[in-house]
Simulated assay, not measured.
Amino acid sequence: MLTLIRGAQVLAPTDLGVQDVLIAGQRIVAMGESLSLQGSGVDIEVIDADGQYLTPGLVDTLSHITGGGGEGGFHTRTPAMEFSDAIRGGVTTVTGVLGTDAISRTLPDLLAKAAGLEAEGLTAVCHTGSYQVPVRTLTGSVQQDIMLIERFVGVGEVAIADHRGSQPSWRELARVGAEARVGGLLSGKAGIVSIHVGESEDYLSLLFEVAQNSDIPLSQYYPTHMNRSPGLIKDGLRFIKGGGTIDFTASHTPEILAAGEVKCASALKFALDRGADENRITFSTDGHASLPHFNKDGILESLKVGAMDAMLNEFRDAVLEEGVSISTALKAVTANPAAVLKLPNKGTLATGNDADLLLLDRDSLALKSVMAKGDWCLCDGELLKKGTFE
């Protein structure tokens, strides 16, 4: 069956005005005004999307699809993600990672979970490694993992400026970056190093040392949690000017915000007002990660779970509360992360691209419908498709 979406205002994420979009199988096959297949004899599903925005599905560059956490003991290991968690958040592409725990959470389990989510209807890629350096891999090296294991597109999230990390030197980070870079070049993948940035005021100093003392550019690294504080955001502006891309974390808690973290939507506005390149900022969910709050003595005081709908909520707040243009805010959750991951058919609406689409109410930006790989998973707010065991 073909699907024809009529009358939506298309944000690709550039505003293309009111257009019709034709989908066949898993791809967009035509876009334009007043498309018609009358008399073709083909079975067509026609969707009236008047009064709605049509946007790309959200691309999440950091989600703990197998669960994470454990900083409060075994009972605080967070649960794995379900297919519908992503769909309800408008996320059609996920990037699975390991975090603090690379002992009870493993790379084989990560790959298996990603393959399962892919079979259920999402697009799922992964990073090899975790917080620790030396990096844990499956084949013995980062380069081999990226080259030989199809789903691995990079490495991380490697922790810096965090008491839970392995306290790597700039030389160790340069070596990881070099391996990932070559693996990416030889396989045509992103080959990025996802960097978890903690609460230390060292900020991005290690990454700047790498760029200053080696041939590895800042663009090889992709630091996340960059909205932990205004000071870290300012360091991120310097990172952007050096050619890198930074990521703001959409999931938060009242405790974390009270400790100084800047709300994701506000961080975007803060950065843009200071001249940041809108093409070098992304949001991610940090979905199903633990969100621990430690006191000044490093003792865990609370722990909550990252939400897969956080990125959609922060996109909405950036537009409706912070006054960021809708196309700019949309780039941060679609085109920009797709570019970081080097996924050319994701994050934008164009003929030939994957049919990962959202329909949003034009006034409230409320999520109405989700299509992933050409299948309606959510329609008019009703969940049509669930994971195997949901």
Rank of each mutant, 00 (worst) to 15 (best):
L111A: 08
G116C: 01
T95L: 13
A115E: 14
A49Y: 08
G90A: 10
I87Q: 04
S40G: 08
E33C: 06
L35W: 06
V46R: 15
D43C: 04
G73Q: 05
D109E: 15
R77H: 14
E82S: 07
G121V: 03
T123W: 08
K113E: 02
Q52L: 11
A102K: 14
F74E: 15
R77F: 02
F83D: 00
L122W: 00
V46F: 12
G51C: 07
M81F: 04
E71S: 01
M31V: 13
A112P: 07
S130H: 15
V46S: 09
G68L: 03
E71K: 01
G96P: 10
G68C: 03
A30I: 05
L107N: 09
T93P: 04
V125N: 03
S104V: 12
G67D: 06
L58K: 09
S36M: 06
T100H: 12
G129M: 07
V94Q: 07
S84N: 06
D109H: 12
T100G: 01
L37R: 12
T66A: 06
D50V: 12
S40R: 06
K113Y: 06
E120F: 05
G129W: 14
A102L: 01
G67W: 10
A112N: 13
G73D: 07
G68W: 10
L122N: 01
S63F: 01
H75N: 14
T106H: 01
V59R: 07
E118Y: 11
S40A: 12
A49L: 08
A112S: 09
S34Y: 13
G90F: 03
R105T: 09
H75Y: 15
A119Q: 11
T106W: 02
G69F: 07
E118G: 02
I65E: 01
G41F: 04
R105Q: 08
T78W: 03
V42G: 05
H127M: 15
I47F: 13
G67F: 10
R105G: 04
M81T: 05
K113P: 06
V97I: 15
I87W: 04
D101E: 13
G68V: 00
F83Y: 13
L111G: 09
D48W: 09
P56G: 00
T78K: 07
D109I: 00
E33W: 10
L111N: 10
G51Q: 08
V42P: 00
T92F: 03
V46K: 15
G129L: 11
T92R: 05
A49K: 11
V46Y: 14
L122T: 02
A124C: 04
E118H: 10
M81N: 02
E45P: 00
R77M: 10
V91D: 03
E33A: 14
S63N: 13
D85A: 04
A80I: 04
R105I: 02
T95R: 10
V46H: 13
D60V: 04
G73W: 11
Y131N: 10
T95W: 01
A80K: 13
L54D: 10
D109M: 11
G121H: 01
D43P: 11
L110N: 05
E33L: 08
L111T: 13
T66W: 08
G57V: 02
G73K: 02
